[in-house]
Write a protein that binds this DNA or RNA. Structure first.
Ligand SMILES: [Zn+2]
Ligand SMILES: [Zn+2]
Ligand SMILES: [Zn+2]
Ligand SMILES: [Zn+2]
Lengths: 140, 140
DNA sequence: CTTGACCCTGTAGTGACTACAGGGTGGATA
DNA sequence: TATCCACCCTGTAGTCACTACAGGGTCAAG
């Protein structure tokens, strides 16, 4: 009637390594499930749903702390979703900052690559850009 | 004549925490410097240059393993800079992949935010998108 | 001679897993 | 029934690049 799953089945259904499922339990993201006579974890559909939630949130780049909050909020059906939106907006802003940082980096690196004349290492613009500025100060 | 630095001075000059300098030494990125009578590390301009190189490379997003290779390559003045370029190109490709992934993420999240009607959590599109698909399967 | 800024070593914590080692369980097969 | 093998269990340690102590020692100024 009420379907149950072993940890391996749960893992297969949510694309999660068994070790990761146990890790989520250890840090309190998943509840301790009941155990079988042989001490195996016995999961039900509620566990499956919760783990699915966690994994989708992770795929969307939320941290486990944020996942924890989202799980908490998702239980408060009758509350306005303001806090959810706020959390997501924060995450989007963070992602945008990271995109920006990476684009800056990419720009710098491609410029260096473009300046390289493909000669000896001694003249390579890339190595040069990493070397300390040797201007002045040879003697104190 | 030949200027020396304490670890703290080196840190200040390269914007590196003292612990981080020691860490670099521990993992073999920086050589063990000579010690003073009081067992203090005594650095010279070569150390300063090397640490500067490491820090600039880190700012450009290279991993410590890549930094290690870059340091190695930078010593081979007479060799062609092919391997340097290759390493940098690999890094750029990696950055581009990360940018792409983040842009996809951003797209997904902003779409969810746009769909939210700001009602109760129970109807929130974001929470919905994270919940498991409840289609069918209510009974086996 | 005491203060306080600096230095030393060694260990443990971060995030989010992942990878064992060393065992126990459960169902199918010979 | 014995044996096999896939699966499960716990506990610990490794990853990356630091960072943060705790518990001391050193050194120059006042
Ligand atoms: Zn080149
Ligand atoms: Zn080059
Ligand atoms: Zn809303
Ligand atoms: Zn909403």
């Amino acid at each position: 009637m009420t379907q149950t799953y072993t940890i391996g089945e749960l893992g297969r259904l949510t694309d999660t390594k068994v070790e990761t499922v146990r890790y989520y339990e250890r840090i309190g993201l998943l509840p301790h499930p009941p155990r079988s006579s042989g001490n195996y974890r016995v999961y039900d559909r509620a566990h499956l749903g919760r783990l699915g939630f966690i994994r989708r949130a992770r795929e969307l780049g939320f941290s486990l702390e944020q996942v924890r909050e989202l799980l908490e909020l998702s239980g408060q059906d009758a509350q306005p979703c303001e806090q959810v939106d706020e959390l997501v907006q924060t995450h989007v802003t963070d992602i945008e900052r990271r995109i920006h940082d990476l684009q800056t980096l990419r720009q710098e690196l491609t410029q260096l690559l473009a300046q390289c004349q493909h000669g000896k290492v001694a003249e390579c613009r890339i190595i040069e850009a990493l070397q300390p500025h040797v201007d002045g100060q040879t003697a104190a």
